Amino acid sequence: MNKMIKYGYLTVAASFLLVSCNAGNTKESQSQNVAADSAMNGEGFIAMLDPNTLTGWEGDSSYWHMDSGVLVGEIKEGAEPLKSNTFLIWKGGEPGDFVLKSQFRISENGNSGINYRSERFTELPYALKGYQADIDGKHQYTGQNYEERNRTTLAYRGQQTEIPNPTASMPGESKGNAWSSLIVLDTLATAAELADVVKAGDWNEIEIVAKDNKLSHYINGKLISEVLDNDQVNRKEKGLIGVQVHVGPPMKIEYKDMQIKMLK
């Protein structure tokens, strides 16, 4: 059992103790205690990051470290180039339906993302295969749904798409770095809205909502991409969560206040 889970149990225990000790207080005081407890547990969200260590995560510590509550992934100047994308993988389970929120900040040349409902790509160390909420420093792709090592792009920024079940006449393939059978159902944001939604070089919020076959990615509260995955052959209903450092030039990605709420 990792420290985060232990902390969650201790928090619940402490809450019950607090209620017991204040049984004689007024209704107003009790209401205040309930409100404070609700704020403490984030209405069902649990923290995913230990403030000072990589406890609860698995990955290559030459690329990942914690710095005063901030998870840092970095390819340093002069370092040996990465040969393949590397992930820091959360050991808290394999969620299916959930809401994940995090703040992120990325350097101009950075390339990262949050993988979910993923599985290990065992041919390489610390590699994942699955859905990814993309994040890049130039914000050409931030918020899109890119399926790592499988169907590639499932929805570009500003798109609501459907991925149909394969048929003999339309099996689907990765073509031009996108899944050939994807159907664009709607436009979620204009080019101007997409250009202004991310604060370059600053902290931004990403939110992933995975519920049944609907996968929604939000940046700073704006719905950026949404996939209705009806592909019963390739879709995944649960799996691992991980954060990525992508092959390429020196870069830095930072995450903080990462939390998750299980929906079922």
Score class of each variant (00 low, 15 high):
1 M>T: 14
1 M>V: 13
2 N>S: 03
4 M>D: 01
5 I>E: 08
6 K>M: 09
10 L>P: 01
12 V>E: 05
12 V>A: 12
13 A>V: 07
14 A>W: 03
14 A>V: 02
16 F>A: 02
18 L>G: 00
24 G>D: 15
26 T>H: 13
29 S>K: 15
29 S>M: 15
37 D>V: 01
40 M>F: 05
41 N>D: 13
44 G>L: 05
45 F>G: 08
46 I>T: 12
48 M>W: 06
50 D>M: 13
51 P>M: 14
53 T>V: 07
56 G>H: 11
60 D>E: 11
60 D>I: 03
63 Y>R: 14
64 W>A: 04
64 W>E: 01
66 M>G: 07
69 G>W: 04
70 V>Y: 09
70 V>G: 06
71 L>Q: 09
72 V>A: 07
72 V>H: 03
75 I>Q: 10
75 I>V: 08
75 I>C: 02
76 K>V: 10
79 A>C: 02
79 A>W: 02
79 A>K: 08
80 E>S: 09
85 N>S: 10
85 N>K: 05
86 T>F: 00
93 G>N: 08
95 P>Y: 07
97 D>A: 13
100 L>N: 06
101 K>R: 11
101 K>S: 04
102 S>L: 01
108 E>I: 12
109 N>A: 11
109 N>C: 04
109 N>K: 15
110 G>W: 08
113 G>L: 14
116 Y>R: 01
116 Y>V: 10
117 R>Q: 11
117 R>F: 15
117 R>Y: 14
125 P>A: 02
125 P>K: 13
127 A>N: 13
132 Q>K: 05
134 D>H: 07
134 D>K: 10
135 I>G: 03
140 Q>T: 13
144 Q>G: 04
146 Y>K: 09
146 Y>H: 10
149 R>S: 14
149 R>W: 14
154 L>I: 10
154 L>R: 10
157 R>F: 02
158 G>W: 03
158 G>A: 07
161 T>G: 01
162 E>H: 05
162 E>G: 01
163 I>T: 06
165 N>E: 15
167 T>Y: 12
169 S>T: 09
170 M>F: 14
171 P>I: 02
172 G>C: 05
172 G>E: 12
179 W>Y: 12
179 W>Q: 00
179 W>T: 05
183 I>Q: 15
183 I>N: 12
185 L>S: 04
187 T>W: 00
190 T>Q: 03
192 A>E: 00
196 D>R: 00
196 D>H: 00
199 K>Q: 07
200 A>K: 15
201 G>H: 11
203 W>G: 01
203 W>A: 02
204 N>Y: 13
204 N>T: 07
207 E>Y: 01
208 I>H: 11
212 D>A: 06
215 L>E: 07
215 L>Q: 11
217 H>K: 09
218 Y>D: 00
224 I>H: 05
224 I>L: 08
227 V>L: 12
229 D>A: 04
232 Q>C: 01
233 V>L: 00
235 R>D: 03
236 K>D: 01
236 K>F: 12
240 L>M: 11
241 I>W: 10
242 G>V: 06
244 Q>D: 04
246 H>Q: 09
247 V>T: 14
248 G>D: 11
249 P>S: 11
249 P>M: 07
250 P>D: 14
251 M>P: 00
254 E>A: 08
255 Y>E: 08
256 K>W: 10
262 M>Y: 08
263 L>Y: 07
263 L>A: 09
